[in-house]
Write a protein that binds this DNA or RNA. Structure first.
Lengths: 273, 273
DNA sequence: GCAAATTTGTTCGTATGTATT
DNA sequence: CAATACATACGAACAAATTTG
């Protein structure tokens, strides 16, 4: 009973949404109907709906109406599954060839990816810093769009020193997937052995491009998780980075899992709360 | 030049914010000044500011004004640092006693935590499922508020089967920190050995309580990362969960790192982009 | 394919309330 | 207490997107 009217209206509607009185995917009453029902101005109704929108409970479509959101079934990605040689990277976070796709299919979901968009660029600062090269150095960029059950799932861009191409790893600049995975390919061609990687996670607002690709609202209501994976090879002076991969995942349809030591190998099921 | 006026105004202001023309922490012109400057209605100015607010670029305070947000220095937490015995949990994500705090101090930041709030509860569904007990079973809950440089940093709640107390681990229900860490304590008292853990990350809107504690807006603009850590002990039938910990971290001041294999042990520095 | 009806989006103007200085 | 600044609320008009006839 306390607080501004638009909040009380939002609370009332939220109750109807959470109690199942308004089912996911169905349309809410129109703004004019709600205005009459609550005896408020249309603008006040719009404030209430805006609040629910920013809380991710409803979404509005011009000319159509306001709809209760469908809960997406989150997809679970495993980040590290113990020591390196024992377990290949799962779930595509590392994107190592076809094995990752097989993992996803085994969970009854169907993945596919666009052909990589390959380009040679001058390294931006955040790429150069991670590859430990000077900004402006030539790097190969490989970008892929990934889908699960035809739903946009992740955007992934990897960067390699262009040097690798001149040394003989010419498939890096071909616009098609490397079936064995890029890490294995580099090992075969250049004898370059991956000894570890570091993954950094940050949460931020989507860019305009990302919002368009994932079908997210362009006002930053839904965050994306950025996974920065730096892969290292051995050298006399210690581990040296040879690749950096940026994976962008929308937070409304993804969960991440990190295992350490002995854990049950049950199928990863999404967690609430 | 395209689109609604409030978006063009927001774009213009955003440019001034990003170019440094308006410095972080300083006040923007008042709504009435902006109304005159852009020749728009005050409501239109408010729409523009609302957009920037939801993008996390500015924040408004009644009676004071609208301010460019201070970029928080993100704190980096390491989730898993290789095999279990080799590296203790860092950065408090596991919250194992004083060693975690020492790690933070070594990075030149000063951590502290509230005394744990201990209570005995009936296990909610999401707790019961992870501990593999029946919903409604008695569990011990230990809740702590954690700060870095006096800034609210994380909320952490751990659940243990109440059985552990009757078996002799009575310190679990004392409202003070367990200096050696709860895992070591349970090993000393009950001979219970942790063999692994699984961490699940999800991103969601903060609850009202979380928003108040972290000083976040209550309309869900800034997400929180929930870290669900299930700790396992050995048994003849395989790993069995003995503790579940929920850690809530606001996404605007935290980054997470996962290492695997050999990586440089440089100090964790925040990453942009 | 077009026109009308429906529904949300944008913009204006105005008045009053609440928090801070 | 007064002035300032943002918050809430009302009413109105037209625009843009979509569906329907």
């Amino acid at each position: 009973m306390t607080g501004p009217m638009y909040r009380r209206i939002a609370e009332d509607l939220r109750g109807q949404l959470e109690s199942g009185l308004i089912l996911p995917g169905t349309r809410l009453p129109t703004e004019l109907e709600l205005r009459d029902r609550y005896g408020a101005a249309r603008n006040t109704i719009r404030e209430a709906i805006r609040l629910l929108t920013h809380q991710g409970l409803v979404e509005t479509m011009p000319g159509r109406g306001t709809f209760a959101v469908q809960r997406l079934e989150p997809f679970v990605t495993t980040l590290s599954a113990g020591p390196l040689p024992a377990a290949p990277e799962l779930g595509l976070s590392g994107g190592e060839g076809e094995s990752a796709f097989a993992e996803i299919r085994s969970r009854g979901r169907s993945p596919h990816a666009s052909a990589p968009k390959v380009s040679v660029q001058l390294a931006a600062d955040h790429v150069a810093a991670r590859l430990r090269v000077l900004p402006g150095t030539q790097v190969v960029s490989r970008r892929q769009e990934r889908y699960i059950d035809d739903m946009p799932w992740s955007l992934q861009t990897s960067y390699y020193p262009f040097e690798f191409v001149t040394m003989g790893a010419t498939d890096l600049v071909r616009a098609e997937s490397i079936p064995v995975g890029a890490a294995s390919y580099l090992e075969q061609r250049l004898g370059l052995v991956q000894v570890g990687y570091r993954e950094r996670l940050l949460v931020r607002q989507p860019t305009k491009d990302e919002a368009r690709f994932f079908g997210l609202p362009d006002d930053g209501r839904i965050s994306v998780v950025t996974l920065v994976r730096t892969s290292y090879r051995a050298s006399k002076a210690g581990p040296v980075p040879f690749r950096v991969t940026f994976t962008v995942l929308p937070a409304d349809r993804n969960q991440l899992v990190v295992d350490s030591g002995a854990v049950p190998d049950e199928l990863a099921t999404p967690a609430l709360a």
